[in-house]
């Protein structure tokens, strides 16, 4: 168990690092490009490509982190109104089915990755293999699927209802302050 917990913590830190620094990388690329154009007169031709690379990574590698924090956007009106037993059942069924969908998508997208690899497509500015970007789609989806399985498991194991392993349903837990809304 100790090892599992250590792995979990490592994955969490890694996800946080990737999310945070890919956003900062985008900021640096876009700002750098403007400043370079203003000061030296020439654009950073690689700026767009690296920014796109960062946004794909942030999006897909963020899936499991957002799932852990229960932050994926959903229409919870009916869920919130439902009695405990229904909510509990849904809290197990929804992550289970979501995980299944994630794994199916991970499968299809890895086929796509293989195709990109076979065709040897390169990016237009840096001429790097396009697969460097694409590969993060199945990885992110797969990690997301795993996290949803954990969301399912915590709801099976615990009595309380969890929206993510790190977030209890706020219908029973009023501690909302640590949720930052943007």
């Amino acid at each position: 168990m100790k090892i599992l917990r250590a792995i979990d913590k490592f994955v969490l830190k890694l996800e946080e690092f990737i999310l945070s620094y890919s956003i900062l990388l985008i900021a640096v690329m876009v700002v750098g490009n403007v400043l370079s154009r203003a000061i030296t007169g020439s654009s950073w031709t690689f700026s767009q490509e690296i920014s796109r690379f960062a946004i794909v990574i942030a999006t897909f590698m963020g899936i499991s982190y957002a799932a852990r924090k229960g932050r994926h956007i959903s229409m919870s009106a009916f869920f919130d109104m439902a009695p405990y037993k229904v909510r509990k059942a849904l809290a197990i069924f929804i992550p289970a089915f979501t995980a299944l969908v994630m794994f199916v998508l991970a499968y299809y997208s890895s086929l796509y990755v293989l195709q990109v690899h076979e065709r040897g497509t390169v990016t237009s500015s840096l001429q790097l293999p396009a697969i460097y970007i694409t590969i993060f789609i199945p990885i992110g989806l797969f990690m997301g699927g795993l996290q949803y399985l954990r969301n399912m498991w915590v709801n099976i194991k615990e009595k309380d209802i969890y929206l993510g392993t790190d977030l209890k349903d706020y219908n029973q837990n009023e501690n909302l302050e640590d949720q930052s809304f943007v």
Binding site: E16, L19, S20, I23, I55, A58, G62, H72, I73, V182
Partner: peptide
């Protein structure tokens, strides 16, 4: 503190961009 602020941005960005995708 900036990386932590960017993490919160990244979280929202991912949640929104998954929908865009």
């Amino acid at each position: 503190q900036i990386p932590k602020v960017a993490l919160s941005t990244g979280l929202v960005t991912s949640a929104v961009f998954v929908l865009v995708a």
